[in-house]
Design a protein around this nucleic acid. Structure first.
Lengths: 252, 252
DNA sequence: CGCCCCGTTGAGGAGAGTCAATGGCTGTGG
DNA sequence: CCACAGCCATTGACTCTCCTCAACGGGGCG
């Protein structure tokens, strides 16, 4: 709940009425077990999902067994907002940990957009950020070395989790195996293991029981070409968010 | 014009009124020369762009000179729709060839969405497809070999250009250097050159003066794990597109 | 004509992959 | 309570894809 609240109010405050509307969407909350599929390739994209607790990830599988993780969904993240289209999903989303997910169908979503411009703005921001994360993932996988990719991902997760929690954290619970990290970064689990060991030895990170501590955020960011402002988006005064009078037809 | 028409009417026909609205947006059309920047890193994202003629590309530059091309914009493509947020752009868009670009500001865009649900739907679809292309790029760069990446990209461009032209084409003009292809795929121009020479020798493609001919689409698709249905999205009957009565606040 | 950009090719090197073995941890069942 | 299976992280040895550096040649253009 806190995570979603932080997410939705990140760019503009929500009044009580808007919040009440959100609460109202709460009817269909489902818990998925770790490794359980939330969306399967081929499912029709006619609902959107909000992570209340736990982690999920989106991946695509090749016929020969290769897997590419496209992105991670953390508490407070709204996903398949963009995909909402009644098309068949071309990827699978599955739970990393036990995961409480709020499922919102199209109708309810459209109602929500109609009833609150503030909420509509919040959803819009979530979508903008989602695409920004995809672009960053392309740069990471396409042009960074193994060490840079890992550090860069850790910093992104650190920042996103800090935002969800509402306070800066340098130690983050990381419920991922080496194979998960490898499949997200276009590497192998063996090489991820080697590289993270190096990073530990060189004093960049510490690891302890499924959690990682970033020892020197600025140094790591510099090494990995991580833009410290990335996702630290301050609220601009956008007509998109304040367009009470010109109600658009297009959701989102 | 044909390209944009094909794009906008891909999923649902446009009536004359909607089309008139589109024409009306035509006021601010700009021509960019090859290599000229259309959007610079740091620019405020307060306009959207429609490619009328030519190619453009979006890239991110690292301080040490590495470049990652995030995606290509072809005739008919609408871009920065998703980014529309008054944030500072974290990437640059520049023209590949001489490029006619229609620039639409936020106000005009919102007006358009309000005035035509059909157009709103068309824009929505463009956004869905844009994100789908980004996800595909992640899989390509993350998990495919050099040969697979190149073939996969060629097939995507072939299909997108065919859609823009309104008929299937196996020979496509490819105004990209080896370095461009390399920076899109996370390779070096030397290796792209070598690999494409191999592909020519093994009878997968032919090249002639800035254009590529795909000799056996099915075989190439199989080799590269390219989903032939990718982007061949048929129009589903989505409430999102027919929601005349519940006008949403959120643009797009 | 000469410059520059681009594609190509060769030689050698490096980063990441493959295969395989080991050891720790956890869960389970006798 | 212990034995064993299964999963995961780690490490070593070796391989291979892709990179780096460099040279050469063709074509466009001033």
């Amino acid at each position: 709940m806190i995570a979603l609240q932080n997410r939705l109010t990140r760019y503009s405050p929500l009044n009580d009425a808007s919040w009440a509307v959100m609460e109202n969407l709460n009817r269909q909350e489902t818990t998925f077990q770790a490794r359980e599929d939330i969306i399967r390739e081929g499912d029709t994209a006619d609902r959107l999902f909000i992570v209340k607790r736990g982690w999920a990830l989106r991946y695509r599988m090749l016929e020969d067994g290769r897997r590419q993780i496209v992105n991670f969904m953390l508490p407070g993240d709204i996903f398949d907002l963009q995909a909402l289209s009644d098309l068949k999903a071309d990827h699978t989303v599955s739970a990393v940990t036990t995961c409480d997910v709020q499922i919102v169908d199209q109708g309810a979503f459209l109602q929500t957009l109609s009833s609150s411009a503030t909420l509509a703005g919040a959803f819009w921001w979530a979508a903008v950020q989602e695409e920004s994360i995809l672009r960053e993932q392309i740069v990471r996988v396409g042009r960074l070395s193994a060490k840079e990719r890992i550090g860069h991902l850790l910093l992104e997760l650190r920042n996103r989790l800090s935002a969800a929690l509402g306070r800066e954290q340098d130690t983050v619970a990381l419920p991922l195996t080496r194979a998960d990290i490898a499949d997200a970064l276009g590497l192998t689990s063996v090489h991820v293991s080697r590289t993270m060991s190096d990073m530990r030895r060189s004093g960049l990170i510490e690891e302890d029981n499924e959690s990682v501590r970033i020892l020197d955020k600025s140094r790591l960011a510099q090494i990995c070409h991580f833009d410290e402002d990335y996702l630290h988006i301050r609220r601009p005064s956008s007509p998109l968010l304040d367009h009470q009078n010109s109600r658009a037809n297009m959701p989102r």
